[in-house]
Design a protein around this nucleic acid. Structure first.
Lengths: 109, 109
DNA sequence: TTCACTTACCTAAGATTCTTAGGTATAAAT
DNA sequence: ATTTATACCTAAGAATCTTAGGTAAGTGAA
């Protein structure tokens, strides 16, 4: 079973989930993706956290740290700028998927 | 217009084209992809040639250099090993596309 | 006939984005 | 008491891309 990510899709996945769920924390994202894809897609934390930090640095995500007992969770949500960008990024991904389909399946696509 | 490749798909594209076309040379691959996708996907030679060399090094592709007047073309084709691998690689890509669709479109996918 | 464009190969430096492999700490379960 | 799960993180290295070149022959237009 090949569980590697095709590079470039992680960012889109994060943004789509946050568009649907308002706010999520990192670990939650890994679990939700795993559930949604029945275990096919397992995001590694070594890829996820740097990606989240990068999106925050670009002003697309903002964070709020919440205390849960003695622990904390860092919740991410889309900024106003992020909300504007998401549909564009998702459309780019969908166009790309269609384009790949043309190559993989030139008769039906 | 975003023409960047989502990383990881170039190899699959090359192998699918060679499965359909028996033999092709590098420049031809860039042109065919451009035509098939109406200009959406433009493979850069800086990505393509190293990818071809890598696949040849792994024994998946073999080459035959043909003289065209004073020039030459380097034709690539699938080895026996390559022909065995292609359907597996294509299926992996298709599974991945479906998985991404689950995230992007959780209702219909 | 010269100059630009296309065809056709290539490489190298740097950027990006991933994997692998850790580390830290609390909470829950065995 | 120890393992597993939750929850954050980073750093080294690998892989794969972009960008920016270089070389050379064929083609077409001014």
């Amino acid at each position: 079973m090949n569980k590697k990510l095709y590079r470039g899709s992680l960012e889109t996945i994060i943004l789509k989930l946050l568009a649907d769920n308002k706010e999520m924390y990192g670990y939650e994202i890994t679990q939700v993706v795993k559930e949604m894809t029945s275990g096919t897609l397992e995001l590694t934390e070594g890829a996820l956290y740097p990606a989240l930090h990068k999106l925050e640095g670009k002003g697309i995500l903002s964070t709020e740290t919440k205390n849960i007992g003695n622990r904390y969770r860092k919740y991410y949500s889309l900024t106003k700028q992020g909300k504007q960008q998401v549909p564009i990024i998702i459309e780019e991904m969908e166009n790309y998927l269609k384009t790949i389909q043309i190559i993989l399946n030139p008769k039906t696509a």
